[in-house]
């Protein structure tokens, strides 16, 4: 049996994860200062921030399955921070688009959101993330009670929208979005399987059924 970290150790782990999550931003700032973002720096910044928003969204979604498979219950205590970092990079991604790419050309931005499906779904994913970030505090969790977890199930909609946002943007080479889609499929698939098992549904549940029989 793996021992859970003490609260002091957990503080250290949290600090390390926090620092780790800031590395992509640090990298971007370093590249910007050293002029190594390439010929199209605005595109490079926007894409990198979007990449990290999506990656951290998937990491957040991975916490529960990993926790259940490994029995490392304390991992759940990193989930909020990871989720908030996903939101942090999503905010920066949106800001890069609004400020650097469009420079507040609101008419163009509005048209993009309404007319370009890949931007529509990306924007929708962002909008849906906002209430999750706002209700991430302990006080909010207490206030919302059971509704908190209901609300936070929105993540199961947000993550597919985010992958779709990437997929629809790509011209021909869908390798990268396909990889994210595959990871997401596993993360959601595991949950579906567990959910089905808990209700005694499906065919892939040798365990409980065998016992009952």
């Amino acid at each position: 049996m793996v021992r859970s970290p003490t609260s002091r150790q957990l503080t250290g782990i949290r600090a390390a994860v926090f620092a780790l999550c800031l590395i992509p931003l640090g990298n971007l700032l370093f590249d910007a200062v050293s002029d190594s973002l390439g010929a199209n720096p605005i595109e490079a910044v926007t894409r990198a921030l979007g990449d990290w928003a999506l990656r951290l969204l998937l990491v957040t979604l991975a916490v529960t399955p990993v926790r259940r498979l490994t029995g490392l219950g304390w991992l759940a205590r990193l989930r909020r921070m990871l989720g908030l970092f996903a939101f942090f990079y999503a905010v920066l991604h949106l800001l890069a688009y609004v400020v650097l790419d469009q420079f507040f050309a609101w008419d163009f931005i509005l048209k993009d959101i309404l007319k370009r499906p890949f931007i529509t779904v990306g924007f929708l994913a962002f909008i849906l993330l906002v209430p999750l970030a706002v209700t991430s505090t302990n006080a909010m969790m207490r206030r919302l009670g059971r509704n908190w977890s209901r609300l936070h199930r929105l993540i199961y909609l947000i993550a597919p929208l985010a992958v779709l946002h990437f997929w629809w943007m790509v011209k021909a080479d869908v390798r990268e979005p396909a990889l994210y889609a595959a990871v997401l499929a596993v993360l959601l698939g595991v949950r579906l399987l567990w959910w089905a098992r808990a209700r005694g549904l499906g065919v892939a549940h040798a365990g409980p059924v065998a016992k009952r029989a």
Partner: peptide, 19 residues
């Protein structure tokens, strides 16, 4: 005439900030 997925009304000249 826009690309079905994005506008073609403006462009970014490589090396410039404003479209």
């Amino acid at each position: 005439v826009d690309h079905p997925r994005w506008s073609q009304a403006r462009e970014r000249r490589i090396g410039e900030f404003f479209k």
